[in-house]
Design a protein around this nucleic acid. Structure first.
Ligand code: FES
Ligand code: FES
Lengths: 133, 133
DNA sequence: ATAATTCCTACTATTTTAGTGGGTATTACC
DNA sequence: GGTAATACCCACTAAAATAGTAGGAATTAT
C-alpha cells in the first residue's frame, strides 16, 4: 500500500511554486533539476494539475508554471486527488464512502474500511499548501 | 493507492474465525466457499497469519484454523500489518515515521506525509477484531 | 483405507507505476 | 528575424507489485 511517487513529486513541485507565488513563473526544467525528478514525468503531472485548474502556464522562453490561486486556498487533498486519483483505498468502498461490494449484507469489515478512508481524507483536507512552506 | 485484496480477504476470514471463537476450528475450504475467495490464495494468507501467531491450525480431517487469542485482543492493525506489510504509504518515510529520503533538509512535504501515515496507523490500532462482529 | 484438511514450492497472468523518446507550437530576447 | 527556452502532445517501454494458479506432500479424524 503506497501512494505513488506522482503525489510526492507533485507536492514537492507545488511547494516550489508556492514559494514563488506572486513572483515569476517557474519552469519545469528548473524544478526537475533542483528536485532531481524526471522532467518528462513532471510535464505529465502538470498537464493534470493544469486541467484541474490548480496551476496556470505561460509558454515560451522565461515561461513556466505558477499557482492558480493563493496557497492558503489550495488543500493538500486537491493536489493528491489530481495526481493519485480517487481516494478509495479499498475495493469495497467508493470515494464517496459507499459500499460497492457484493457481500454488503453480511460482512463486518466495512466499519474499519470506511474509518480508514475517512481518516486519510480528513487529514489531507485539513492541511493547505501554505502549511508546507 | 489501494490496500491489497489480501487485507480485505484476511479481515473477512478473520471475522469468520472470530465468530467461531471457542467453538470448532474453521476450514479454509469453508471460508473460501462462503466468501467466494480463492482457497489457494487464502492458504497463503494464513501461512503468514499463523507465522505471526494470530491464528492456530489443526491439520487433518475436521481440522482448520482458530484464533490464537480473544478477538478483543487482536487489533485490526495486527492483521493488516501481516497481510499488507509495513504501513509506510510514502517512499520518503519509513514505518517508524522517520524521514529516509535524500532531500530531508529542504522539503516541506514531510509534515503532511507523516500526518497521513499517523492517521492510518492510529485508526487501525484503535479497533479490535471484536469490533467487527 | 479414505477423505478432508494444512502445508509447501514453484510458476503465470494481470495491473499499476514509473519512465522514455521524439517531436510541435509558442514566446521572450538579442 | 533567428535562437533558445519553454509548454504541450502522443505513443511506447520497462519495472514492480498484485493476484492469482498448479500440483502436490504430510497429517489426522472417522
Ligand atoms: S466484502 Fe466488501 S465490505 Fe465485506
Ligand atoms: S523529498 Fe522526501 S520528504 Fe521531501
Amino acid at each position: 500500500m503506497k501512494f505513488s511517487t506522482r503525489t510526492t513529486y507533485g507536492l514537492r513541485a507545488m511547494i516550489k511554486l508556492a514559494a514563488n507565488y506572486n513572483k515569476a513563473a517557474v519552469s519545469l526544467a528548473h524544478i526537475a533539476k533542483k528536485e532531481k525528478i524526471s522532467q518528462k514525468y513532471l510535464e505529465r503531472l502538470f498537464v493534470a494539475l493544469k486541467k484541474e485548474k490548480l496551476v496556470l502556464s505561460e509558454k515560451g522562453a522565461s515561461g513556466g508554471y505558477r499557482l492558480a490561486r493563493d496557497p492558503k486556498n489550495i488543500r493538500i487533498y486537491d493536489i493528491v486527488r489530481v495526481l493519485e486519483g480517487e481516494i478509495n483505498p479499498f475495493h469495497c468502498v467508493n470515494d464517496k464512502g459507499e459500499i460497492i461490494c457484493s457481500q454488503k449484507c453480511h460482512c463486518g469489515a466495512t466499519a474499519i474500511l470506511i474509518k480508514v478512508q475517512g481518516a486519510i481524507n480528513s487529514t489531507l483536507q485539513s492541511m493547505k499548501l501554505s502549511d508546507l512552506l
